[in-house]
Nucleic acid binder design. Structure first.
Length: 164
DNA sequence: GCCAACGTTGGC
DNA sequence: GCCAACGTTGGC
């Protein structure tokens, strides 16, 4: 019996890297990097597993919302940008032998037929507990329950069978 | 160990 | 562009 699949929501600013950019990337896969928050780091390093499904959320845009579904295809590994002095995410305090920051690889699975904006999420009583709609919620990677995931996918017009 | 100052996130 | 919320830093 394989371990149970988990669900996540990750935020990305579409001006930096949108869901369409992920679809267009080589192998529709990218390194999801640049996270510099310890709680999010722990999730990336310890909790996200191959085969987990991810709601890809566009933040800092109008309107913010969920654009598509991605899959974790490579589990946590050291984020290379922390060692690159030219990168804005460079961290001089991180030791290559004991890296401070981690990344995962995400692969595009399915764009939502209908973009699900944050106002749509907030209007759905089934999603009132969802982390992303809570006040002051800034974590760039958040756990999502299976039922929340199913609900958002349904709102986006995808069939569960599309995401077996 | 407290907490004020500061920087960042991100909706609005 | 504003600013509330939150995390981090650093003086004491």
């Amino acid at each position: 019996m394989p371990p149970k699949r988990s669900y996540w929501l990750v935020k990305s600013e579409p001006d930096e890297f949108s869901y369409a950019d992920l679809v267009a990337a080589r192998g529709s896969t990218t390194l999801w990097d640049g996270v510099r928050n310890y709680q999010a780091r722990n999730t990336l390093r310890d909790d996200m597993k191959r085969g987990d499904l991810v709601l890809y959320y566009h933040s800092n845009t109008k309107p913010p919302g969920v654009a598509g579904v991605a899959e974790v295809v490579r589990e946590g590994y050291p984020d290379p940008t922390q060692f690159d002095p030219k990168d804005s995410h460079f961290d001089a305090g991180s030791d290559e032998a004991d890296p401070r920051w981690f990344a995962v690889d995400l692969k595009a699975r399915a764009e939502l037929d209908a973009y699900v904006s944050i106002s749509d999420l907030k209007a759905n009583p089934n999603l009132s507990e969802m982390a992303v709609v809570q006040r002051g919620q800034r974590l760039s990677v958040q756990p999502v329950t299976a039922s929340e995931f199913r609900e958002v996918v349904k709102m986006g017009g995808l069939k569960a069978a599309d995401l077996r």
